[in-house]
Amino acid sequence: MDSSAYISLEDVVFSRSGRRIFDGVSLEIPRGKITAIMGPSGTGKTTLLRLIGGQLRPDSGRVVVDGHEVPKLRRKALYAFREKMGMLFQSGALFTDLSVFENVAFPLRVHTRLPEDMIRDIVLMKLEAVGLRGARHLMPSELSGGMTRRVALARSIALDPELILYDEPFAGQDPIAMGVLVKLIRDLNSSMGLTSVLVSHDVPESLSICHYACIIADGRVIGEGSPEQLREHPSGQVQQFLQGQPDGPVPFHYPAEGAARDFGLSGGVS
């Protein structure tokens, strides 16, 4: 893998409500590449993004992004640091009281003192990049799920960030919207030279665009490498996840006492 890691997690331990989410996760995310972080639901993929963005602090371990140790940044420095970072939330998280245009203009108005005509040009360019220049007057409630995510994507690249974090970008999308998002993520990464971190459990789409991928389960990294390396990975758990097999190292049945006893049978059923 690329030696210049943009993000590095070292032995990160994180618990919430008494439950250990990460138990010594170490991971390096290369600069200028698309890295997919995959894993079953509830394994803490979104939590990982929040640790990278400094919204959560690990119990122990280091989270280093572009040379900054994120958990140790003070509030003001953390907010300044986040200006270099864009995040696409699963719900889009558009501001419901602002139009599409104003949503994309929001970070520009807050962080820059650009004149209004320049803000307009930048916003229209960003909306053009996601194919929604014509939808600038619409309100978020008038958008479909796919359009919402595209507007949110335009907003997250408004300040030309170095890093984009995508939280489940493909979840709940129809095939066309999914294709559009795959294309946008790939194009944005190559044209802007971004470092992209993609959290998803949509295996084919994620592996089709990422340069590097890792799979997290049970609080640790169970497999990592290029998409080709992962497809050949010897771990049964990795293969079960990639191929979507219903039973395997992750059992179909939730642990329970013997079926014979539950059903009141004297024998013959195991």
């Binding site: 919204q55 986040r82 864009g86 995040m87 939330f89 719900s91 970070p107 807050v110 962080h111 907003r155």
Partner: peptide, 18 residues
């Protein structure tokens, strides 16, 4: 609930102030 506050934080805007 709709992650608007989180997205604001991630844009470097403090929701407490804004």
């Amino acid at each position: 609930a709709t992650e608007q506050l989180s997205s604001m934080e991630m844009m470097g805007v403090d929701p407490l102030r804004r």
